[in-house]
């Protein structure tokens, strides 16, 4: 006999929480690693460097996340058979890279032009102007929106269940197909997402406050 008590459903779904968090953390980290160079290319003066970065960013953000995952999982499989989890990680990383690159680019653009000029007037080389003066401020500016994005990403990982990643939603669907009440089971899933998101939201608000008090440029 199946047991669909709160505790039992919770225990089943918690098994997927780790996968959900793993997908969030890995794709956010990979998105940052890819997003920074993309943002640098995107702000280049050279069209030949800027354009490919723009294209990659726009494509990664322009295609619905679900479609990305379906393409990578089903589309690439004849050539490159992938397990659901790696496929999801690749897709979510590509999407994160696009969003985070745009955050970093906006950070770079929002550093006051006077900063670079002051650095230039002090005889700093263009590379020092960027790395010592512009980049740290750009990073500060881009942290709050990126922290918000992490919260959005946590929720977006739910689509990975469609290609069979055993995350919270995948396990919830199993429970429902085994006869659990859909409303009840998904409500428990919702609670899990909320709980996982609380530290992230709290952290992103905290970072926002720190950055605001730190970078009050005139």
């Amino acid at each position: 006999m199946s047991d669909f008590s709160f505790v039992s459903v919770l225990q089943t779904l918690v098994a997927g929480l780790g996968i959900t968090i793993l997908m969030t953390v890995v794709s956010f980290a990979a998105g940052t690693l890819l997003g920074i160079p993309l943002a640098l290319m995107r702000t280049s003066k050279l069209w030949g460097v800027r354009f490919p970065a723009m294209a990659v960013i726009d494509i990664s953000r322009g295609i619905p996340p679900l479609v990305w995952l379906l393409i990578i999982y089903y589309g690439l499989s004849p050539a490159l058979p992938l397990e659901p989890l790696p496929a999801a990680l690749i897709g979510l990383s590509i999407i994160s890279a696009g969003y985070l690159a745009e955050n970093f680019r906006a950070g770079i653009d929002n550093v006051h032009t006077g900063q670079k000029e002051a650095a230039a007037a002090l005889g700093l080389t263009p590379s020092n102007q960027f790395w010592r003066i512009v980049a740290p401020q750009a990073l500060n500016i881009s942290i709050p929106p990126s922290a918000s994005y992490a919260v959005a990403l946590l929720k977006d990982t739910a689509i990975a269940s469609i290609i069979g990643v055993a995350d919270i939603i995948f396990l919830a669907q199993n429970e429902v197909s085994r006869g659990g009440s859909a409303v009840f089971v998904f409500a428990v899933a919702a609670v899990l997402y909320l709980l996982a998101g609380i530290p992230l939201s709290y952290f992103s608000r905290y970072i926002d406050g720190v950055v605001r008090s730190k970078v009050v440029s005139v």
């Binding site: 006077g114 000029e117 002051a118 007037a121 740290p136 401020q137 970078v215 005139v218």
Partner: peptide, 16 residues
């Protein structure tokens, strides 16, 4: 630029 110093209307100190 190392031989000529400049002071701007908007200060432009490095806030970080």
């Amino acid at each position: 630029r190392r031989r000529v110093g400049m002071v701007f209307q908007s200060f432009n100190l490095f806030p970080h």
